[in-house]
Amino acid sequence: MFRLTQLVTLADRAARDDLAAALRAVGRRARSLLVEPTLEGSFNGGDLLVHASFNAAGDRAAFELEAQALLGRPATASIDSVSYSSEADGREPGLRDGIYRVLLLSIEPGTDRDTVARFEAELLAMPRHIAAIRNWRLSRVEQAAGARAWTHVWEQEFADAGGLLDAYMLHPYHWAHIDRWFDPECPERIVDARLCHSFCRVDRSAISSGG
C-alpha cells in the first residue's frame, strides 16, 4: 500500500471547505481517502488533514500532482507532507465516528540504528499500555516535505477526543517514559523539537480500513 499524509495550512481559512471538496474529487483513484478539517488542539497540524492510500505508486504520484495544483499559493501557506507504505495494527478495525491522529517527527541526523530501533519499539508498545489507542501505525517516511525532513509518522485512532487528550496524553507510559525521547531536558532525546500533531474526526477507521 502506498500512503500519503499531508497537513495543509491555508492562507485563507475561508477556502477550506472548497479545497476539501476539490481534494476529495481528485482522490478518485485512492483506495481510501480522508480529507477533514483539523480539530482544536492540533499543533503545527494545519487546517486540513489529508490522508490517502493507493494500490499503486503511480496513483499516489498522480494524486500528489493534482493536489499540488489545487494547493498552490496563494490558497496555501504551507504543507507538511509524508509518503510511506507500512501496515497498520489495531484492536478495533470497525471503529466508527472516532478520532484519527497523526504525529510527524524528525529524528536527529546521526542517531544510531539501535537507538532508533529502541525508540520505535517503545512507541509501538504504547497501545499495550494505553487501551484508548484503538488502531495504530508507525512508519518510516520514504519522502518528506515541509518544516522538517520528517523521518517517522505515528498514527493512532481513538473512540473520541477524550481518548487522545486524556487517556493518551495523561498516561504515565507516555509522559514519564516515551517523552524522554522528545524532551530537550532528557539526555536520551533524539527527536527534533518541531513536531506536527494533528487530529480530525473520522466516520470509520482510516487506519484499519486499508487507509
Binding site: 496524553m169 504515565p172 509522559w175 514519564a176
Partner: peptide
Amino acid sequence: NAGAWWGMRAVSG
C-alpha cells in the same frame, strides 16, 4: 499531577 507535568514540559521545551 500529569497536567502540571505537561505544563512544565510545554514551557521548558
